[in-house]
């Protein structure tokens, strides 16, 4: 199978959905002429013009609001918030409006709106361009939250997100855009809400998502040499969370490490840990452990930034602790 980058996989997904459905359009900051801050929408403006690939003013709240209004009235917008750090500017529209409107209206409308954004640390961009704010978003009933780790998942899940009749926040990772992986030429979809076991193992389960999937797989390969068999569960979708796959893996290994890039306190891992307590406590042979981002604003210094998020070495160490 051919190998393409995460960036190209996303670009193909957007292009294919623009071809397939005339109600799909793209809007966001620098998405047209520039092709997106990270190049995801490259060349789409040349093909589809201003009508369907729209540069917007720097107005995050209105970008989501306009997308919502269009989604309510027959269009299928894909809007981009350049950095997840700018999501707070649009959070009123996401939390109070887009996510709740269907329920508030008694189910008498649909909101086929995709909000693409990008997060995570790794480029030493400091505290306003490196955050992982997904736990804020999974606290919003009515939303779906998708965070793919591989080019294959990115493409299949973005296409599903665009076709979904609910508001989806699709969170990419800035350090994954250049990563490559197999992606078939022919069309495929990946259902929202399904985790994927990226590596089968017997001794311990690592539950993770986005870039931390890659780090966890590296840690698993290292530990294999020590005779430890690590299972890596890639959640892929955080809301709704695939509790069945999590529980099945816990039943198999009886030990769990959660690896997340977001700040530990009130983070996604807290939710995963409690779900395990509720659904699989009796299966556990050891307390669930979390390896998470530090509870600090992301520092600029490359040295400090590396310390602020998990890395393969510390994942190995945490797994060894879970196994003790």
């Amino acid at each position: 199978m051919r190998e393409i980058s995460y960036r190209q996989a996303l670009n193909e997904a957007l292009n294919e959905e623009l071809v397939r459905d005339q109600t799909v359009f793209i809007a966001g900051e620098d998405v047209a002429i520039y092709g997106g801050a990270y190049g995801v929408t490259a060349d789409l403006w040349k093909k589809y013009g201003d009508e369907r690939v729209k540069d917007t003013p720097i107005s995050e709240s209105a970008i989501v609001g306009v997308g919502l209004g269009a989604a309510l009235t027959g269009m299928r917008p894909v809007v981009e918030i350049m950095y997840i750090d700018f999501i707070p500017l649009a959070l009123e529209q996401i939390n109070n409006q887009a996510a709740k409107i269907r329920y508030m209206f008694g189910g008498k409308c649909t909101v086929p709106l995709t909000i693409r954004t990008e997060g995570g640390a790794g480029r030493t961009l400091g505290a306003h361009h490196s955050q992982s704010l997904e736990s804020w978003l999974i606290h919003i009933p009515g939303l779906k939250v998708v965070m793919p780790a591989t080019p294959y998942d990115a493409k299949g899940l973005l296409k599903s997100s665009i076709r979904d009749n609910n508001p989806v926040v699709f969170i990419e990772h800035k350090m994954l855009y250049n990563s490559k992986g197999p992606v078939p030429e022919e069309e495929y979809l990946i259902p929202i809400g399904q985790a994927d076991i990226k590596r089968q193992g017997r001794d311990v389960t690592v539950i993770t998502y986005s870039r931390m999937v890659l780090f966890s797989l590296q840690a698993a390969a290292t530990l294999e040499k020590e005779g430890v068999s690590v299972e890596v569960v890639d959640l892929r979708t955080l809301l709704p969370m695939d509790i069945d796959t999590i529980v099945a893996s816990v039943r198999k290994t009886h030990r769990v490490l959660i690896v997340e890039e977001d700040c530990k306190t009130g983070g996604t891992g807290a939710e995963i840990g409690m779900l395990i307590m509720e659904h699989a406590f009796d299966e556990l042979d050891a307390p669930v452990k979390r390896l998470a981002g530090a509870d600090v604003p992301m520092p600029k210094s490359p040295v400090l930034e590396k310390l602020a998020i998990p890395d393969p070495e510390r994942i190995c160490q945490a797994i060894r602790e879970v196994l003790q």
Binding site: A62, G65, V66, L68, G69, A71, L72, T73, Q93, Q97
Partner: peptide
């Protein structure tokens, strides 16, 4: 914002 999006 919603009104503006409906107009779009």
């Amino acid at each position: 914002g919603m009104a503006t999006g409906a107009a779009l």
